[in-house]
Design a protein around this nucleic acid. Sequence first.
DNA 1: CATGAATGAGTCTTCATTCAT
DNA 2: TATGAATGAAGACTCATTCAT
Lengths: 209, 209, 209, 209
Amino acid sequence: MGISERKLREKESRIKQIRDSGAALFYKKGYVATTIEDIAAAAEISKGTIYLYFKSKDDLYYSLVEPSLDKLSKKLIKIAGMKEIDPEVRIKNVVDATYEFYDKDPDAYHLVSRYEASIFSNLLSRDKLDHLKDLMRSNLNQLEIVISDGVIQGRFRKLDPRMTSIIIWNTFMGIIQFQENRLEEGKTDYRRTTIDGAVEIILRGIRKR
Amino acid sequence: MGISERKLREKESRIKQIRDSGAALFYKKGYVATTIEDIAAAAEISKGTIYLYFKSKDDLYYSLVEPSLDKLSKKLIKIAGMKEIDPEVRIKNVVDATYEFYDKDPDAYHLVSRYEASIFSNLLSRDKLDHLKDLMRSNLNQLEIVISDGVIQGRFRKLDPRMTSIIIWNTFMGIIQFQENRLEEGKTDYRRTTIDGAVEIILRGIRKR
Amino acid sequence: MGISERKLREKESRIKQIRDSGAALFYKKGYVATTIEDIAAAAEISKGTIYLYFKSKDDLYYSLVEPSLDKLSKKLIKIAGMKEIDPEVRIKNVVDATYEFYDKDPDAYHLVSRYEASIFSNLLSRDKLDHLKDLMRSNLNQLEIVISDGVIQGRFRKLDPRMTSIIIWNTFMGIIQFQENRLEEGKTDYRRTTIDGAVEIILRGIRKR
Amino acid sequence: MGISERKLREKESRIKQIRDSGAALFYKKGYVATTIEDIAAAAEISKGTIYLYFKSKDDLYYSLVEPSLDKLSKKLIKIAGMKEIDPEVRIKNVVDATYEFYDKDPDAYHLVSRYEASIFSNLLSRDKLDHLKDLMRSNLNQLEIVISDGVIQGRFRKLDPRMTSIIIWNTFMGIIQFQENRLEEGKTDYRRTTIDGAVEIILRGIRKR
DNA sequence: CATGAATGAGTCTTCATTCAT
DNA sequence: TATGAATGAAGACTCATTCAT
């Protein structure tokens, strides 16, 4: 019993090693430029071992992107659904949740934010592709719902909720990407504060006075 | 002389063919997934000819990205430098200029916006890499200058100009990317209007009342 | 003109090199055990060159088997169709034609005689697979027609033409295979005489007295 | 002792499982296309276990082919040796024995009939290779002996016993292969009757009148 | 200059074999 | 003994780059 437990633990840790190395490399170099050999080396295992746990390179990639997207998606749906809460607060909550997701698992976040449908269109089945697209869309939809609520409740100006959600979403992604580059160059970490500043500006921009 | 002129013209047109095909393909499929064969076929020349004009695949890519970045950069520097003009108008002008750049040469724009330093850090020399980074930074700097002016002139609230420029810049990039995806799915073209809406929201968010 | 002609000749000779090496190796070691590297080495070219002329390993194999089978097939159809000729003579003619085919292009013959549908069922499209099967069947059918004619004309005993054609066909294949083994061991070449002896025995066995 | 007996029994049954699965798979898919994993799965044991009982994949294959060949060989030697029996009857007996061998253990038969020296020349030692060749030859030799007896006794025409044995042997192999293909396509089972028909024709062809 | 055939290093993937438990 | 995870050599195939014409 102890043995089988340990085996299970080891197997899971092996999978985790592969997933972690894969996520980090896919994020750093992109799908095409990352080789299975790279991932194996980073995980300190052999090439073959990866194929014990993942059917193929794109299977590994999909298995990284999908649950991450799914997790974030579920989180945002929950937050956006709290109709009783003030829309401004809900927007902040969405941003907080996304930042927390990013903070806890940056590689997963990057896979999500860097996801490019075009790369996958040749690799994944129609089903999987549509599923990923749906998840991506869902995140934006949640923001849209909250903004829409705010407009209806007269808290926000009469503006296009769709457009506004796009602005917020891409501002978030862009800021993270930008501040990370600065971080790499040894500069101070302004990620969280820049995000907060951006939210402040945008809320001010959409708020009804 | 007539002959050598024609030769020159032909040579230049040959180079243009390669550059145009390269830009379009690099944008559509990404650097790694684009093959020299692809580009040669699109340019209706032979593979070997590309190597007459470009040292290597990454040389071609660099030669596409650099002038595009440079061109946009110069444009923005000019606009941002018009200190006599109202900061809000200058911000709008920066956005207009960027949009015009995008509209006239979408492939060049995409090369710029999709440029990923990480991919090139292994391919390009330190010099070239730094140069590209500088150009990228310059664009943000111009926005920063304008916002800074606005803050000093008391037209904008006291906010971090750097942060604000990041917000504007990434909102632009994100909206283009997003609306292009929707365009591909056959939906109405909301690129320009979404951009305008976003600028409106942000200006409202940073304006001093 | 002279140049393009030479180029064409060189290209054809390159293809011939690959085909010849491929046929010889596929015959000697079987489809699975033969590697593209093997074939390239035998043809004294590089791996990549093979892929300039053939889409894949199984494409090369198919391109070797199909025309060979087709050629033999057509030959036998022609001979079997000569209804005015004595059935015994026609059987001999079929055997002669098959032997001539073998003698002129042993590798092609071996590809045909060693063809195993099971190997291909996973590699080839339904169309191609059916086509090969049809060709294989056709050869037997021609023998069957001749024997059938002989039975109807009262020259042969009342026996199953299908069964008899199978006997003749497999005797031929078996004898070639067997005598080649002996030949390899340095023994005298009895291929043709054994074939003739076998035909003699079988004709005697089916002839009506 | 009861325990060690059980252990022995289990061990033998384990080996049998491996051998049976191996024979079936080697026959169905060929040596190269059959994986150790396949065999282990079919035998419902683990990959490692196979290596407890067999040194390598080719060792397993050899250990399957050799005894099968040996068994058939011994059987035919016995029958062919019955000098007091009529040669025609002995030929029939040889065919019957071969058919019975095939009928009882088709996989073993196929291993024998599909055995291809060329594949093994790289894998097996000279000794083993020669041994297999000897066994293969022996079968033909037995037929040759019987036919030779028939010629001497004046029952058969003056023909080459070697050649005649080759004809008979290969007719048998060819017919089985051919009729099995037809069987797979759902057609009636004509294996035994075709064999009998073939023997009838050949005997008639070699009989002295 | 232009061509495109040829090259071979590099990529994904499979599988015989080993070995710690 | 039995297991099955791990290994890494080997194979099919791609593509940037070179070079003879």
